[in-house]
Amino acid sequence: MHDLAQQIVSGLATGSIFASMALALVLIYRAMGIINFAQGEMAMFTTYIAWQLVQNGMPMWAAFGATVLVAFVGGVALERLVIRPVERAPQLTVVIVTLGLFTAFNGLAGWFWGFIVKSFPTPFPTSPLQLGGVAFSAQDLGVIVVSLVTLGLISLFFQKTKLGLAMRAAALYPEESRMLGIRVGWMLALGWGLAAVVGAISGIMIAPVVFLDPNMMQTVIVYAFAAAVLGGIESPIGAVVGGLILGVGINLLGTYVDAIGNELRLAAALAVIVVVLMVKPAGLFGRATVQRV
């Protein structure tokens, strides 16, 4: 039983990372109707910035805050400078641009920091925490708390603030929103900024576990795709729930089903994508699109 509880918590920890990355994907998908393939590499790049700040002597949590800020400004700037020129182009063009960003960030990180794997300091205590007689990793619990707080704040922002409301309206009804005086282009840029922030936090949270290297997010982002598809690519709640289900599910499968083990976890995630797309293409929380003709 203890073992199961530990596995579930550890699954929730990775799951909350998948959830965050999936939310970042959903934020941009809802606003632009495209998958940002560079989302993982943006997260990786900002994680390197955090690492560099810590190397330069900044305390971990200060580096965390500074990186979040850099990620926000960087995300907004990326949208304004790189995405905006192709805003009106066909969606495939925008997707190709995000693939370009993917290679650009991967290459830049390798150029600046090298491709050698680095260890990343954990912001949490290293000794386990005893809860109800079971020892849980403080890293896992910390990741869960930070991710859930982040997701909660994002949700509050969208539900309770005027700007969040305007961003939702701009994503769903761009033409109508413009008539109300909302600058839709800037709302899009803010969305990129927020997605970059969520990604940066995920990167910093998972780096102590997967270690720092330019390819660190590539597996994570595949799980995030699976989580977003599972929850419904248009649904922020779905992304979070999908991420948590996937994290726990994959962890339990890998631990208790010998045939899957560590090696086939990623394949299991891909199987989730295929099965969901076949059985319920809108995902758990998505609404099937009804088109009037």
Partner: peptide
């Protein structure tokens, strides 16, 4: 007030 009322229907 545009043609078709510009309702933000899901809000």
């Amino acid at each position: 007030v545009p043609e078709g009322r510009g309702t933000l229907s899901s809000l």
